[in-house]
Amino acid sequence: MHTVTLQTHYHHVFRRRALILIALAVALVLTLMLDLSAGPASLSISDILSGLLNPENLELRHRIILFEVRLPDALIALAVGAALGLSGIETQTVLNNPLASPFTLGISSFAAFGASIAIIFAPSLPWLGHTAMLPLFALLFALLCGGLVLTFSQMLGGNRENIVLIGIALFFLGEALTSAMQYVGNAEAVQEIVFWSIGNLTKAGWTEVIVVTLCFFLILPFSMRHVWVMTLLRAGEAQAQSLGLNIRRIRFFVILRVSILCAFAICFVGVIAFVGLVGPHIARLLLGEDHRLLVSGAALCGALLLSLASFLSKALMPGVIIPVGILTAIIGVPVFVLLIAGKRRRP
């Protein structure tokens, strides 16, 4: 009757999911190429490939476009998308809430508040350029928000309902404070704040790419160390706790690293909506609940979504770059709905 052992059976399941993960990685490379090829200057994909392999193959103008404009923009899309996907999956699992994302912890609205302070008061530090102030303020306020969530939740006993509530409360506080800044700011400043709040990738350079990428790869090993507990948590907190695991402590560390990662992800590019929420869900639908695959899968899905959005932001209307934050939801929602519908049909 049972000729196949459970282990071999699971091995098959795991291998199928690993193949999906590889397919996602391949898709990511393809969208990256698409993204690099899109833009006003006509550079074909083969030009880009040969240029990447040997920059001497390109004429100087195209070399500058590729290496100083397109590559940083395309890579920051990957880095930010991956960071948001990773922080999204960890937040959802650890709070046991499919609607949770780093943004529902208030991180994004505090970042926007920090950014608006920088825009309106234009503070300056002697040893930092003016352009560095905006991301710096966004980063500091996002981190402040993470700190507040952790402090309050520790004070209230650290259960997950409280963390969700505190996060939502801080989210609205950040929104209100940003609105207050807009109220006192002049029209130009308000426009800049709104523009930042939509999120766009075009201002990023190599420094930004390196910072976000570094942050992602520094946080990832910690996430990988927790994959077993995170998988176990999908059976519910009571079950994980009954085995003697200190879920409160684990949750503290997860929220801590998620806040840091998310703060770095959005401080340069603004509030990119939806990726941190839907990237993880797409990954879950495709890969199941085993966090060994799911953690990297969510990062891949986030990167894929944002890269696709970045491509479309340049390709949809020739000559115009639509802010990418507008597109993430517009392309994310249909993909998401299709996947859910597909899953339904399969029993």
Partner: peptide, 20 residues
């Protein structure tokens, strides 16, 4: 309370518990 209704597989649950 029994394990919650997620898309976790029972085999995965026991496996990850043992590893965790």
């Amino acid at each position: 309370t029994p394990p919650q209704e997620s898309s976790l597989l029972p085999f995965e649950l026991l496996w990850s518990a043992a590893r965790a």
